[in-house]
C-alpha cells in the first residue's frame, strides 16, 4: 500500500476513529472498507467514527462505499457514524438526490463520540484520578452523607 492510499484507523477506547482527508481515490475507498472491517474484528470494536471534515469532495461512489462499509460493519456488530461533513458537500449530495441511508450522520466529532456513549467529564484542578472515580461512582457522595470516610 502506498502512502497516498494509507488508511488511518485510530483506536479510541472500543471504537475506531477513521479520519478521511483530501481527495479520496477509488482505490483508497476500497482499501478503507477492507482495513476498517479487519480492524473491527481484530480490535473487537463496537463503533466506527468516520470523520469527513478533511474531505474535499464526496461523490456518488464514495457515498456508496461508505454505505457499504456501514452495512458490513453493522453485520459485524459495529455502528458507523459519519461526522464533519462540510455544508457545500451536504448541499451537493442533496442536489444530486443521494441519501446516506442507514448511516447516522452528525455535525461534529464530539457529537459522534456522544452517539457512541462517550462523553466528556471535566476534572477539577484539585481532583486526582482516584477522587474523580469516587465521584463518578458516587462513593464520595455516600461518604459525605455518612459523615466522612470510614
Amino acid at each position: 500500500m502506498d502512502d497516498i492510499n494509507y488508511v488511518t484507523c485510530i483506536p479510541l477506547w472500543d471504537c475506531l476513529l477513521v479520519p478521511l482527508h483530501g481527495d479520496v481515490s477509488d482505490t483508497h475507498a476500497d482499501q478503507l472498507v477492507t482495513e476498517v472491517l479487519e480492524r473491527i474484528q481484530k480490535d473487537e470494536s463496537f463503533g466506527v467514527l468516520v470523520d469527513l471534515s478533511g474531505v474535499w469532495t464526496l461523490d456518488s461512489h464514495l457515498c456508496a462505499t461508505l454505505a457499504r462499509l456501514a452495512l458490513a460493519a453493522r453485520m459485524m456488530g459495529a455502528k458507523t457514524v459519519l461526522s464533519g461533513m462540510k455544508p457545500e458537500i451536504a448541499m451537493t449530495l442533496e442536489a444530486m438526490g443521494i441519501e446516506l441511508r442507514g448511516i447516522e450522520t452528525v455535525a461534529t466529532l464530539e457529537d459522534a463520540l456522544g452517539s457512541m456513549g462517550i462523553t466528556r467529564v471535566r476534572r477539577g484542578p484539585d481532583q486526582d484520578d482516584d477522587l474523580l472515580s469516587q465521584d463518578l461512582f458516587g462513593v464520595r457522595e455516600r461518604e459525605r452523607e455518612l459523615g466522612g470516610p470510614r
Binding site: D23, T57, D59, K86, E88, T92
Partner: peptide, 27 residues
C-alpha cells in the same frame, strides 16, 4: 478533479458552486 479546482479558482468560483463542478467532473 485537481484541474477542475484550479479552473474554479481562476474565475473565483468557490464553496457550493465549486463543489458542484468538481463533483460533476468526478462522476
Amino acid at each position: 478533479r485537481m484541474v477542475t479546482r484550479e479552473t474554479c479558482k481562476l474565475v473565483n468560483v468557490r464553496g457550493y458552486q465549486a463543489q458542484k463542478i468538481v463533483t460533476t467532473v468526478s462522476e
